[in-house]
Computed example of a mutant assay.
Amino acid sequence: MPEVLDEAPIKTSGLNHYFGTGDARIQALFNVNLEIPRGSLTILMGPSGSGKTTLLTLIGCLRVIEEGSVHLLGHELNGASEAAFVSLRRRLGFIFQAHNLHESLTATQNVLMGLQVHGTVDPKKGRDAALHILGLLGLSDRCDYLPGNLSGGQKQRVAVARALVSNPEIILADEPTAALDRESGRKVVQMLKTLGQVRGTTTVIVTHDPRILEMADRIITLEDGRIVSDDLQ
């Protein structure tokens, strides 16, 4: 199916999701309807267990859609093949609270992995891109360090660099600033906001961090699997 470029890159309609089976089956999301415009920075908030991360993983092709519709970059995910999921994931950037760095690779090599998922990469161009993004995140002097020699905040910034280096169309981030001090956290979010303004990159962030709320274009609050507020900033 061809992509419609003027269409919102993320749309959900009547989205429900469940965990468990039989008597243990629990509904995690209830009739979630969303439309997130291109280039925006949206924050998902709510208490633990409210469905924020479940929604993020459904949008990111990390879970199968059970009921309802998710349109991602013009493609319907309900009933999509694994091949379609893989193809769409390559157009996304993921930032998780658990940075998931490879301990045997340097910071630069970890960032390069964000390019290698897209296929063959020119070694020099790839390294230049990795060094550039690490420099923007204040890690120029840590490029050749292994994760074991980096602080928690530095590891998280490497994970952010890995997500951004391929210029993804959508960035999905789960607590990206949790391990960062105020200045570093705001710098990361400002980078994401700038990417939206300059390149049209769409960002969705799950967070409990009140320090970054004012930087959002929109704040959506979930409770018990339902959207209870949706505020434009």
Rank of each mutant, 00 (worst) to 15 (best):
M1K: 14
P2H: 05
L5C: 05
L5V: 10
S13V: 12
G14H: 13
N16A: 05
G22I: 08
I26C: 00
I26M: 02
Q27G: 02
F30W: 07
L34D: 08
I36W: 05
P47D: 00
G49T: 01
T54C: 11
T54M: 08
L58E: 08
I59M: 03
V64A: 13
L72M: 08
H75W: 04
L77Q: 11
S87Q: 09
S87L: 13
L88A: 14
R89A: 14
F94D: 08
I95P: 02
Q97V: 10
A98F: 07
H99F: 14
N100Y: 15
L101V: 13
H102S: 15
S104N: 14
S104W: 15
G114H: 07
G114A: 09
V117F: 05
G119P: 11
T120I: 11
V121D: 04
D122C: 10
P123A: 05
S140W: 09
S140P: 14
D141C: 05
Y145R: 15
P147Q: 13
L150A: 11
G153T: 02
R157W: 07
V158M: 01
V158F: 04
A159Y: 05
A161L: 04
A161H: 09
L164T: 07
P168R: 01
L172H: 04
A173E: 04
L180A: 00
L180S: 03
G185A: 08
M191G: 09
T194Y: 02
T201C: 07
I205Q: 02
T207L: 07
H208R: 00
D209V: 10
R211D: 14
I212N: 01
I212G: 06
L213C: 11
A216P: 11
A216I: 12
V228L: 10
S229Y: 10
S229Q: 15
S229W: 09
S229F: 14
D230I: 07
D230M: 08
